[in-house]
Design a protein around this nucleic acid. Sequence first.
DNA 1: CATTTTTGGTTTATTTTTGGTCCATTTGAG
DNA 2: CTCAAATGGACCAAAAATAAACCAAAAATG
Lengths: 229, 229
Amino acid sequence: MTASSEQKLGATDIAALLRREISKGILHLHDRLPPERVLAETYGAARGTVRKALNLLESEGFVEIRPGSGTYVVHMPADTSSDAVENATPLELMDTRFALEPHICRLSVLHGRRTDFDAMESLCARMETLLDDPVAFSEVDSEFHRALANSTRNGLLIWIIDQIGHVRSQDDWTRMRHLTLDAMTIKQYNAQHRQILNAIRTREPERAANIMKEHLETARLSLTRAAET
Amino acid sequence: MTASSEQKLGATDIAALLRREISKGILHLHDRLPPERVLAETYGAARGTVRKALNLLESEGFVEIRPGSGTYVVHMPADTSSDAVENATPLELMDTRFALEPHICRLSVLHGRRTDFDAMESLCARMETLLDDPVAFSEVDSEFHRALANSTRNGLLIWIIDQIGHVRSQDDWTRMRHLTLDAMTIKQYNAQHRQILNAIRTREPERAANIMKEHLETARLSLTRAAET
DNA sequence: CATTTTTGGTTTATTTTTGGTCCATTTGAG
DNA sequence: CTCAAATGGACCAAAAATAAACCAAAAATG
């Protein structure tokens, strides 16, 4: 949201942008950042503002300011676990989902209960009303896959899918793709969701898993197509 | 509920939307949200309404309002990691590995490099000297599966396997089982590890995946057997 | 080595932005 | 109708951002 539209950037905004570039590895260890005066121009801000941002980053230990010399990336503080989640690429995400979700279908057949399936059913219904609202559709889509994981009654798997959900919502590429979803693609997704749910309800684990693979393959295609645009 | 496009949004609705964006991580910690006047326009509401929503969020601890400066996100999206990971049962763990590791074998064939396979090879060699030391064997076994994940070059998957590794080491049941590993079972594991590595080296993804499934099935049996004791 | 340029550090006066507040009016559900 | 919520506008004070000038030290130059 902060960076969503091109508004005037404040000190904290600039700090956030730089912080992100550092932890994403765009700015490497021991790299020198551009001079304050240059940063000021590139961000369209006054030098004093950039300066405030840099002092923030220094106090956080991201950066070291050497008077007369420059400002240097000194360390990315242990962001520990979530680092991998935040930096995951869309392709990594797809491969991971390919690993997990077909088997989740099988486990859903084994452990899922009526109420789980009913919840998924209502999510399907909601998605079918959203042919023209890609953003809302994507959100409900995430909820559907979450509900599917939930039906395995496997806390570990549910947690992993949740973590993955954070990637999906954070990733710019994915978010952009959501905006380019057309009605036809959404229709196809909806059909696949229905088929998966039906296969699970009729206790056909392998069929459900296979449709899920198709579904993910469809999504992967849409992803690479969006990437080429 | 959450209107897809055009619905009159009340203060509680706006609060809900923002709350969601915060816990989803779209709005990061320390991010400044847009000024009230801008939010008012983007949500199609009056400033007073947005203001009410923000005060709600502040009282909930999601956000900090600094007069003259802006409104800032102050909320660590629940680190549920310890919960789900620590409370996972051995059976949940096995199901999760069943989902992940066969596909990891396929990805290893696609993305793995010589050095990755050499590392796994040396781990195999070490395991083969540990027929009589179940504890040491289990540690190296974990390393092997970690190295296998590593060969996918997929940071997200590697991270997930790491998390799962924490379960394996923390779980009492699993640890006890390790103590009851006999030389014959270890020998069988070693053979399977070798077969998996060879299948990957010869670029046979499905064969590698299938042997991994066998391997996990073996482990699952050993688990249930230990449980009956 | 001496000199020039670059870079961060500091100060100041001024303008813009931002949340805080109040109030008369409109809207919408019970 | 009634009442609570939302609206839209105006104004305030604090905070932040700006713009311009000058300083000192590091780095680059010759």
